Computed example of a mutant assay.
Amino acid sequence: MSDRAIPEETHAMASPATDEPPAVMLACHDLTRVYREGPQDVTVLDGLSLEVRAGERVAVVGSSGSGKTTLLNLLGGLDRPTRGDVRIAGESLLELGSAELGHFRNRRIGFVYQFHHLLAEFTALENVALPLIVRGLRKKAAESRARELLAKVGMAPRADHKPGELSGGERQRVAIARALVTDPSLVLMDEPTGNLDQTTAASILALMDELARTTACAFVVVTHDPALAAHQDRVLKLDGGQLSEQRTGG
């Protein structure tokens, strides 16, 4: 394991003046995950490969139990593959020690879980600001940035409320703001609009569009929602441990 510091890099963006394609933000090759269940090995992902470029939004669909959440956990460094590699902005997650990996996730990866995982004792504002405070940003600056994101997801009036005082949809919007507050290179989303009404879901899609266009942030979205999947640049189906292209083109 390396002890080197993670560099403070900027997002890789393609120049609008050239025909060069955007940089590859996420790349995985031969990604395999095998679990031991009693006397048997169960292969969930089987030599899967994937590339997602800066500013690209990719939806992953598939039946329950097909391995979508396992894939997200591997892409986010929350689990280790049995075989294969995951690279984000050119950095191999497997080459990072546990402390480095936590540091890297804080700067490069945003997570939106199917269930929000907000801290019950903190307000919405404090939950969103926390990743920046962990990074070392002063509280006042972190909370200022957090208020900007809460406003973008329509939660500014509820910033000082704790999760127990919010509806399920409101908690999910706070979780989305928390994932985006660090300006990540890659955002991983597990059913991000599942608890949102149609109007709020549309506002989240618009925010994703803006971030993909202006910051080169890449998105991988796991969903059962056909409308959410259709809104992405590509739709991939996970089946039999492999990804297949279902649709391209936005």
Rank of each mutant, 00 (worst) to 15 (best):
L236Y: 07
E8D: 13
T43M: 10
P184S: 05
P131S: 09
E51Q: 11
L166G: 07
V235F: 06
F122E: 08
D3Q: 08
R173S: 15
G102L: 06
R145T: 06
P163D: 05
E20G: 12
E121G: 05
L150F: 04
F219V: 01
P39V: 04
T123R: 07
R83N: 10
Y113A: 02
T32K: 09
A201Q: 07
G169L: 04
E56C: 03
M189P: 14
H161E: 11
D197S: 11
A146T: 09
L48T: 03
A59K: 04
N73Q: 15
R158V: 07
A177L: 15
A202I: 14
R108N: 03
T200C: 06
H224V: 07
A129N: 09
L238D: 01
L101Q: 15
A156H: 14
D233K: 05
A212K: 08
S66E: 03
E148D: 05
A201L: 10
Q40V: 10
Q114A: 04
H231T: 11
H116P: 01
A17W: 14
R138Y: 01
Q114R: 02
V112C: 03
L132G: 02
L72Y: 10
L45S: 08
R178V: 01
L93R: 15
N195T: 05
E95S: 14
C217V: 10
D209P: 11
L48P: 04
A159H: 13
A146Q: 10
V181S: 12
E143A: 12
M13Y: 02
L166Y: 06
D85Y: 12
V42I: 06
R57S: 10
S49L: 03
L243V: 05
R83E: 13
A17Q: 11
G110N: 09
P22H: 06
P184N: 05
D79M: 13
A216F: 00
A159G: 08
A142S: 05
E37G: 10
G249W: 02
A229R: 13
C28Q: 04
D209N: 14
V187Q: 13
F122H: 12
L149V: 04
A120F: 08
